[in-house]
């Protein structure tokens, strides 16, 4: 009796989730494990044969100065983007829940960039930085706009950050708006009656109650910006002279262009571990600060 119910439950489980489980295994788990396996080989992405090289690829990763430099560039890009995305998104959400006129239209407007794919977005902004801003600079005599943002290493990474913020802020804003709307009215009224207004109410009442929203938004920005590839490819393609090549792109170049698949894959594993550690730590830390109402 018990056994048959177990079989039945297993059957239901497979019927409802079998297909997605199969897909999940095929496109995520198996490639991941196979990729991990390849980090111990010297496969060149083309050959039919490869030999085992032990931990050699990992040693190469940690002595590859270029990868380490690009990893630092990536960290800087992620840190600045994550903070700016959230600050902008939170500010937008705050303003667009305060009852200003046309707020629904504005919400939609800010959300639209997220509907455009990273590749298209990159090309649009490449045109803006290289052609539109430079023309404005020349027409109005603004020196710092006369040359493209994308041809100077310091400014090109800022161009990446600007576009990232533009892309994600609207999406995160929606999550924050949900957070704002979800704060119980009675708590807010109690705060008002107690004489907490403006910033005091924001910092002492609103923000502590919105920690779950921050948690989700931080997780989204961290994991997505660490893995940025499409925007990187279409906006700068690493230019000028490789200074804006982020870690994900370096991995790709190493595996497919330099044809050192094992090394590229080992770099991907290192990147995965770092991203997982940072994201999970962030979630765990913030989880402790969540307030139950």
């Amino acid at each position: 009796m018990r056994e048959s119910s177990l079989v039945k439950r297993g059957g239901y489980f497979l019927a409802f989730s079998g297909l997605s489980l199969f897909a999940f295994l095929c496109v995520l788990v198996i490639p991941f494990l196979y990729g991990f396996f390849l980090t111990f080989t010297d496969w060149n992405a083309i050959s039919d044969t490869f030999s085992f090289v032990g931990l050699q690829n990992y040693r190469t990763v940690f002595t590859d100065k270029e990868f380490l430099r690009q990893f630092l560039v990536t960290l800087r890009y992620v840190a600045i983007s994550a903070i700016l995305c959230n600050v902008v998104a939170f500010t937008l959400a705050y303003l667009l829940t305060s009852g200003i006129r046309g707020q629904n239209l504005l919400r939609g407007g800010f959300f639209v960039p997220n509907l455009i794919g990273g590749i298209i977005l990159g090309y649009i902004w490449k045109f803006m930085f290289a052609n539109v801003f430079t023309q404005i600079g020349k027409a109005w005599g603004i020196d710092w706009l006369k040359t493209s943002f994308l041809t100077n290493p310091d400014r090109a990474i800022w161009a990446m950050i600007i576009v990232t913020v533009w892309q994600y802020a609207g999406y995160l804003m929606m999550i924050y708006i949900a957070g704002f709307v979800g704060i119980p009215k009675d708590v807010q009224e109690a705060a008002d009656i107690d004489g907490a207004h403006g910033f005091r109410k924001l910092f002492r009442v609103t923000i502590p109650l919105m920690i779950p929203s921050f948690n989700i938004c931080m997780f989204i920005t961290l994991s997505r910006t660490f893995m940025t590839y499409d925007l990187n490819l279409s906006l700068t393609n690493g230019a000028p002279y490789g200074s804006t090549q982020l870690a994900a792109m370096h991995v790709y170049q190493k595996a497919f262009m330099s044809k050192q698949f094992g090394v590229g894959q080992a770099e991907a594993i290192v990147l995965f571990v770092v991203v997982a550690l940072i994201s999970v730590t962030q979630v765990l830390l913030n989880k402790k600060r969540e307030v139950e109402v």
């Binding site: 290493p153 690493g238 000028p240 002279y241 490789g242 262009m257 330099s258």
Partner: peptide, 20 residues
Amino acid sequence: LTGDAWAKTGDMMLKYTVGA
């Protein structure tokens, strides 16, 4: 030559072009 020789050395040439 491997696929990235021109890209890598080309990036160096670009640095030279702008005087970096």
